[in-house]
Structure formats: structure tokens, C-alpha cells
Nucleic acid binder design. Structure first.
Lengths: 185, 185
DNA sequence: AATAGTGATGTCAGTTACTGACATTGGAGA
DNA sequence: TCTCCAATGTCAGTAACTGACATCACTATT
């Protein structure tokens, strides 16, 4: 038996999600989160860089979904590789819908959190662009394609979140088709 | 003669830009900014919501450039209307290049500022989408087109900033052409 | 001309996110 | 048995931001 209950980070994460949901992000103090997790404020900041970070923990995994899909895509136009990334992400999100929705509700209710999310998304765009450059796509096509992929993801995600159970995959397919219509104009 | 020197906001803005450039954003306290402007910290927060806001002041004007251009564009595909917005913004930025570069150097050196900038940019995308919907463009085309316009702006802006005096307008033209290549694939 | 606002500022006290320095202690290994 | 370590605690401090109230040149009203 160790000195402290194990799973401190997990407990903090859970406590924070609960409190953010119950009272709203800025009505919750870090001290309250720590208390519910039976820890101190100082320990909170040892596990998370700031009050918002826990909501964005899986960022590395998320980006890897896209990058891996792009890297292992068969030769072809940039947008085809990116499409594979989009479908991979959709498959990853679909079974976690309830959690994703809860999390998004919290984020959308607070500007600071939306800012942070956009930073993560721009990191995604940059990562996609880099993955395309690795495949020999020249600039500025790589950047443009990365950001275009992000546009599709962002719009599709918004639709998926507010839709009543439509499959993420089908929304992606639709968005990609609409993109071609838009860009051709 | 009034009780206080006029132009408090202007003085605060100038003092902040100077100090951010000299020492870096997080080495500067609001107290120091206020002192250089011959005001108090409290007054700073009456003019600006937070330490970063002054760097994003002209946001309304910036968005209006796009929205007005889109609203007054001749009938045609969404991307044509957005292109007009892009050229309008380019014309607005070009003569202010030195200031824009200085500002961008500050922003790029600090994560919090980049987050804020992305929020403003996403507001731009949303505004463009709304302007398109007002012209009868249906969803999800409007959102997609708005975000695609943002992609072009963002990539072009990055190129313009790091280029050695290339005209913003010509960069936009190139990006739009590349976009068609990318999206057609 | 006296009076009564008003608006931009100052003053002050408080909350909270976040940080650095140092103390504590159960358990793992020498 | 001894020593070290990793995860936590304790404490003191900085700085962003907020609310409540005071000040006083200027302006409008009577």
C-alpha cells in the first residue's frame, strides 16, 4: 500500500470535468477541484499546466490520427490523403460521442477555452501540412491543403455535434463533396 | 483645459506596444504600462478588457472589410465574393506593413497571443459565412466557404509577413490559384 | 450664479491563477 | 538497515483582474 491513493491525475481530471459541468468553468476554483480530488492546489499544477489543460489532454493522439493516416496513404493528390485522416478521426470520435459532447459544451461556454481549442486545431493544420511536405507536396500547396483539411474537420465536427446522431463519417463525406463545389466556383 | 491629459487610451496602447517590443509580453506588467502612460493600473482595465486586448483592437474594422466586400459583390459563386474580401484586406494591410510586422512579431512570440489571434480569425470565418448566407448560399457551403477563405488569408498572410516585400495582392492571387489545384485533386 | 449632475480617473481591498523553495515520508533498492 | 527517490504537502509570493467608493473639472439646469 503506497503513501497516497494512486491515480491522482485521473481523480483531478474527473473532479474538474464534474465541477465545470455543474457550475461553469469560471465559477470553479482550482482549490475546489483539488479538494474534491483529495489533493492540494499545488499538486494540481504539477499535473496540469493550467486550469484548462486537462480538457485538451488527448491532443497528441488526436493529431497522430491525422498524421499517421496521411503518412501511410497511397500516392495521390493531397486532399485524398487528408480525407483518410478525416475518416480516421471520425471513427475515433464516433464511439466517444457522449464524452465529446459534454466536453464541447464546456468549451463552447467559455471564450478562453475556445481560444485554446483553436490553438490545438491550428497545430493540427500545421501537422497535416508538415505530413504533406514529407510526401513531397510543395508550398504553398501543403499549407493550403492542411488548412483546408482543418476547415472540413471543423465544419463537419460542428454539424456532428449539433446533429441528432448522424454518423460523423457521412458528414465528412458530404463536406468533402461540398468543398469541391465551393472551390470549383 | 480638462482635468486629465486627453488620449488616455492611445497613450496606453502606445506604451504597451513599446514595452512588449522591448521586453517581451510576459516580462511586462500592467502596472508598468500604466506608469509609462501616466495612469493607473485600474484605468488600464477600464479601457482594455485584458493585457492582450490592445493588440487586437482593430478587429471590427478588419472584419468589416471582408463582410462589406462580400455583401457588395456581384452575383456569382461564393469564392468570388470571398476573393473580393481578400483583396480588400490586402489593400488595407499593404501600406501598414511595418506596423503589422511589429505587431505580428509580438503575437508570434507568445502562445496566449496566438490563441487570441486565432479566436479573432475564427470570428472572421464566422462573419464571412454569415455574409454568404445573407446572399443565399446554403449550409454547409457557407461555413465551408468562410473557413476556406480564412485558410487562404492565413496562408497568404504568413507568406506576406515572411516575404521580402512581395505584394500581398499577388500572394493572394497565387494562393487562390493553388487552392483550386488542391481542391480539385 | 448657484446647484446638481456626469464622466473619466484615482484609491483600496480583495480574489485567484500560478510559481519557487523547501519539508515530509512510504517504499524500492543497495 | 540505510539511503535515496518520487509524489505530495506547506508556505510565501507575484501579478492579473474586479468591485466599491471617492474625487473633481466640466456642463447643463434652474
Amino acid at each position: 500500500m503506497s503513501r497516497w491513493e494512486p491515480g491522482a491525475e485521473e481523480r483531478l481530471s474527473r473532479a474538474a470535468m464534474e465541477l465545470y459541468s455543474e457550475r461553469g468553468f469560471d465559477e470553479v476554483t482550482v482549490a475546489q477541484i483539488a479538494e474534491r480530488a483529495d489533493l492540494t492546489e499545488r499538486t494540481f499544477f504539477r499535473h496540469f499546466g493550467d486550469k484548462a489543460e486537462m480538457l485538451f489532454g488527448g491532443g497528441g493522439h488526436f493529431i497522430a490520427l491525422f498524421v499517421d493516416a496521411i503518412a501511410s496513404a497511397p500516392p495521390g493528390p493531397p486532399l485524398s490523403a487528408i480525407s483518410l485522416g478525416l475518416y480516421a478521426a471520425a471513427a475515433d470520435f464516433e464511439p466517444r460521442r457522449p464524452f465529446v459532447l459534454e466536453r464541447q459544451k464546456i468549451i463552447n461556454s467559455h471564450t478562453d477555452l475556445m481560444e485554446r481549442e483553436l490553438l490545438k486545431l491550428s497545430a493540427l493544420a500545421a501537422a497535416m501540412s508538415a505530413a504533406l511536405r514529407d510526401r513531397g507536396v510543395p508550398e504553398p500547396q501543403a499549407s493550403l491543403a492542411g488548412w483546408t483539411g482543418l476547415s472540413v474537420f471543423h465544419t463537419s465536427f460542428a454539424t456532428w455535434v449539433s446533429s441528432d446522431g448522424r454518423s460523423f463519417e457521412s458528414i465528412i463525406t458530404e463536406s468533402l463533396a461540398e468543398l469541391k463545389v465551393v472551390a470549383a466556383g
